[in-house]
């Protein structure tokens, strides 16, 4: 493994040159607007004439704004956890399955990506609604007398987001788990480890890169999923994307909206950094044992 890591050193040099067009696009269409956003956020008044850190102070000293940020980060954590718990077995099954079944699993995982997020989200409205599939099934079975409220609740939103973002979790997991040599599990078993021990000491640490990548993608997608959040979560559950939209669009308070975006960005970057640190530590621990 070590030698493989050093050898591609030469290749990256060419890679950088080839990445130049993309880097340019990135600089012009991402870095520059981001700088502009930051510049805008450093103004105290809505028409951006007075310089100052007022918008940041306003956000960071307002318990309500902080609670919106907290709720958004928590929502992301819930969705990511649910995706991981549901997605890992699928990825694991994919590695163990025969060729035909593997194709089916990949197809099922990819299928949602072929429909737009709006369509997937609307499907959840149909499923969770008062006369939706779940409520009418439960009612016809006589399990409930009045419909449960699932649409426009946190639980409903987490489930819908988890389904919508599931491919982002499962695909990296499939790649990572697929790379694990199946002989390792046999080796572990022959050395006397049980199924659980083998899983926790061998398979799980080796699949950590996939878990980290999947969690990062799912997390970022879940907390920024404006469409799903507003359609399944409704107008009274406020998360950062809607808060931002409200300030920018309805209230025309662009500097505050810009400050919200920057704070949101920093918070998300911090979480992503935390993920990768945890991942690295887990890998180091895995190597050490």
């Amino acid at each position: 493994m070590k030698s493989a890591a050093i050898a591609p050193g030469d290749v990256t040099r060419y890679g950088l040159g080839l990445a130049a067009p993309l880097a340019l696009v990135f600089a012009v269409f991402f870095i520059a607007p981001l700088a502009q956003l930051f510049y805008l956020s450093l103004h105290n008044d809505a028409v951006a004439t007075v310089w100052g850190l007022g918008q940041y102070v306003k956000f960071l000293t307002d318990p309500f704004s902080l609670s919106v940020l907290g709720a958004t980060l928590l929502l992301g954590a819930e969705v990511t956890l649910l995706c991981l718990v549901l997605g890992y077995p699928i990825a694991w099954l994919h590695q163990r399955a025969g060729h035909w079944l593997q194709t089916v699993i990949i197809l099922i995982v990819l299928l949602p990506l072929l429909t737009s997020v709006v369509v997937r989200t609307f499907a959840w409205i149909v499923i969770l609604g008062r006369q939706g599939i779940i409520n009418s099934t439960l009612q016809s079975l006589g399990l409930i007398s009045t419909p449960l409220r699932m649409l426009y609740t946190q639980g409903g939103l987490v489930v819908a987001l988890a389904q919508v973002q599931m491919p982002l979790m499962v695909l990296p997991l499939i790649t990572a788990i697929g790379r694990i040599d199946t002989n390792l599990a046999d080796a572990s078993a022959s050395l006397g480890a049980g199924h659980w021990r083998t899983f926790f000491r061998v398979i799980l640490p080796l699949s950590m890169p996939g878990i980290i990548a999947g969690c990062t993608l799912t997390y970022a997608a879940a907390i920024t999923a404006f469409i799903t959040q507003s359609l399944v979560g409704g107008g009274q559950m406020l998360f950062m994307p809607m808060y931002l939209y409200q300030q920018a669009s309805t209230l025309q308070n662009w500097p505050f909206a810009a400050a919200i975006s920057i704070i949101f960005l920093v918070a998300v970057l911090a979480i992503v950094a935390l993920f990768s640190t945890l991942g690295r530590r887990a890998r180091i621990n895995g190597d050490a044992t």
Partner: peptide, 20 residues
């Protein structure tokens, strides 16, 4: 209240689902 929709368009579609 059964729903506080995010926008009037989303509100109108809730009739289709019997949500409101």
């Amino acid at each position: 209240l059964a729903a506080v929709a995010a926008n009037p368009g989303a509100l109108a579609t809730l009739y289709q689902q019997g949500q409101i």
